[in-house]
């Protein structure tokens, strides 16, 4: 291995400079000056990611008033607060499932395309512009005088404008618009990772398109789809700007991030805000673990078709 060769080349030189054997011993475990280069980044992430998280966890058990569980008891006894979990799941789960399901046939089709790069470039634009801009755009586009309603009325599909913004529909549409490209690009990278010769072999043996998908592509794809579902779900679960701007932030799109924001920046209760953030993280973790547990029911194995 290169590491071993590298180490052998280095070890005598370093021990000549500094005759303490502990350096050699550490070097044999691949700990030397180069390894230490990782330390600043580790300290940074520990200090500004891990520490705040633990600090928030501890803070959430130190409420302004009451015993250490007061924040959590308040959250789960006040429907105005605990309903936000349901409101968020009601948006995030369907949006994620729709995005993942639609991305499969589209990705299967796109991988055979020659100029894939153009399509992927177009799809990266909504991800890059972000949810705030999409919210502003959809307010114009989906509004009662927007182009979508006008087009539908022109063709006589509807007689009065549909109410598509400042409600559940608006947030859902924005989650699909901003979430689908991300989900799709992940699915595409998983599908292109499946060796095409496996499907060719099946086709040679007489399997039709549906049978090939059912018995070859899908089993190989399930692992990737589970990871994709998790990554997409945590993105949609943390919906904030579009829920405020496009939804009804006091009504049926009062998602959990709005509750956390209000606790932190309107009531200045950092302890309660931390508690809500921890509950948010916990619900995400629970859904992710369920999804990952679900995938172990399926086939696990190589997606390549190499010999041996």
């Amino acid at each position: 291995m290169t590491h071993t060769a590298d180490r052998l080349a280095r070890a005598p030189q370093e021990s000549a400079q500094d005759r303490t054997p502990w350096r050699v011993r550490l070097a044999l475990h691949d700990i030397d000056g180069v390894t230490l280069l990782v330390v600043p980044a580790v300290l940074f992430v520990l200090g500004l990611f891990a520490y705040p998280f633990l600090y928030g966890l501890v803070l959430s058990f130190k409420p302004r008033a009451g015993d250490f569980l007061a924040n959590y008891r308040k959250f789960f006894s006040d429907p105005f607060l605990y309903d936000t979990i349901y409101a968020t799941l009601r948006l995030a789960l369907p949006a994620t499932i729709i995005n993942v399901l639609i991305s499969i046939p589209v990705a299967l089709r796109v991988r055979k395309m020659h100029r894939r790069r153009l399509l992927t470039t177009i799809l990266v634009i909504p991800i890059t512009l972000g949810t705030v801009l999409i919210a502003e755009g959809l307010l114009n586009y989906l509004g009662p005088q927007g182009w979508l309603n006008r087009t539908l009325m022109l063709f006589g599909v509807i007689s009065t404008p549909l109410r598509l913004v400042h409600n559940y529909t608006g947030v859902m549409l924005s989650l699909i618009l901003s979430g689908f490209p991300f989900t799709f690009l992940l699915t595409l990278s998983y599908i292109t990772g499946i060796d095409a010769s496996l499907e060719q072999a099946a086709a040679t043996l007489g399997a039709g398109a549906r049978a090939r998908f059912r018995h070859i592509v899908l089993p190989l794809l399930v692992q990737g789809l589970a990871v994709n579902f998790c990554l997409s779900f945590v993105q949609t679960f943390s919906v904030f700007p579009s829920a405020v701007l496009l939804g009804a932030p006091a009504g049926d799109t009062r998602v959990i991030s709005i509750a956390a924001y209000q606790a932190a920046y309107e009531q200045y209760d950092a302890s309660m805000a931390s508690a809500i953030a921890m509950i948010m993280g916990f619900v995400q973790l629970a859904v992710v673990l369920l999804a990952l547990a679900g995938r172990s029911l399926f086939y696990r194995g190589a997606a390549g078709g190499g010999k041996g």
Binding site: V42, P52, F53, V234, A264, A273, A277, G281, Q284
Partner: peptide, 23 residues
């Protein structure tokens, strides 16, 4: 260490943003 670096990318900013802002 790699897991430590993966977490901030996989956990959405809203979730760790509020404790981070508090600190």
């Amino acid at each position: 260490v790699i897991l430590l670096f993966l977490l901030p990318l996989m956990i959405p900013p809203i979730t760790f943003g509020i404790p981070l802002a508090t600190v």
